[in-house]
């Protein structure tokens, strides 16, 4: 199974230009919004807004399909399973022990599926329109320690390398007659060890080299280090931040203070 090493697609849309911190906040508020809503119509409206935003973000079609292929499968499964496990309410549409299906059960299943879509879309909105570099920058600005941020950035940088190494080692062992995913539990586990031991040893050697490279470039020499590119919130970013917070805060107030079901 292969995914994408990087979901980001380069483009100059307003979503790309928005400060990564604002987008991270938006993921949180949009997810929370999806979680507090249970009315199918409200959720569908939110989902529609998400779709529009994703289209605005101009992600590549292939990446979008990959990102949502599993989401759609889970949605289908929920729509089928939810009514079976939650046969509450009336009217009852089907009742033949042990299976009982009710209309509220079906509606709640669909609502849950749409909620999953919204949760996934919020994440992909961020991933499609934010480069890994900006993402780490944003996290560091939001309080992630610089050294951990550096470590995270480096691990993202090394991901393609390691994926290639794992593939290459898999091939190397297959050339020695190894057949992964064949045989019983024990044999399979042993076969994976034959792939993982060379992988880990290669990686640990790389960590040694990397640590020397960091030292030779004066990592940690001064606490008051400077940055080449500073993130700066512009007026548009503040507007976006305000919208992102309001989008959750207003419905939350309506629901929890004025007790209006959403």
């Amino acid at each position: 199974m292969t995914g994408f090493i990087d979901l980001y697609t380069e483009a100059g849309t307003f979503l790309h230009r928005t400060d990564p911190r604002v987008k991270i906040v938006a993921v949180a508020t949009l997810s929370l919004l999806a979680l507090i809503m249970s009315n199918l119509v409200n959720l569908l409206v939110l989902a529609a807004v998400m779709v529009v935003l994703i289209l605005f973000g101009r992600a590549s079609f292939k990446k979008t399909m990959l990102a949502f292929s599993y989401v759609f499968r889970v949605m289908a499964l929920i729509v089928v399973l939810w009514p079976l496990f939650n046969p509450g309410g009336t009217p009852v549409l089907f009742d033949l022990w042990p299976i009982k299906i009710t209309e509220p059960g079906i509606l709640a299943g669909i609502a849950t599926a749409v909620r999953i879509f919204c949760l996934a879309a919020a994440w992909y909105l961020l991933m499609f329109t934010t480069s890994q570099r900006d993402l780490v920058r944003g996290l560091v600005k939001m309080g992630l320690r610089f050294d951990f941020g550096l470590s995270l950035a480096m691990s993202l940088r090394f991901l393609p390398t390691f994926s290639a190494i794992v593939e290459s080692i898999k091939e190397a062992q297959r050339a020695r007659g190894l057949e992964l995913d064949k045989g019983n539990f024990r044999k399979r586990a042993k076969d994976y060890v034959a792939v993982l031991v060379p992988t880990v040893i290669t990686a640990l050697k790389m960590a040694d080299t990397l640590s020397l490279a960091l030292q030779s470039r004066a990592y940690g020499a001064r606490a008051d280090r400077t940055y080449v590119r500073e993130l700066k919130m512009r007026a548009g970013d503040y507007v976006a931040l305000f919208i992102a917070v309001a989008v959750f805060a207003i419905p939350a107030t309506v629901k929890y203070i004025f007790s209006v079901p959403l």
Binding site: R145, F146, D147, F148, L150, S151, L152, M154, S155, L156, F158, L159, T161, F162, T199, V200, A203, L204, M206, A207, D208, L210, S211, L212, L214, Q215, Y219, G220, A221, R222, A223, D224, R225
Partner: peptide, 21 residues
């Protein structure tokens, strides 16, 4: 200048590699 109170370069490299792995 005060040296930064960072984790050692070994740790940064090791954690990066283990995470990517």
């Amino acid at each position: 200048a005060t040296p930064a109170k960072f984790v050692s370069p070994r740790t940064v490299a090791l954690y990066a590699v283990l995470t990517a792995l």
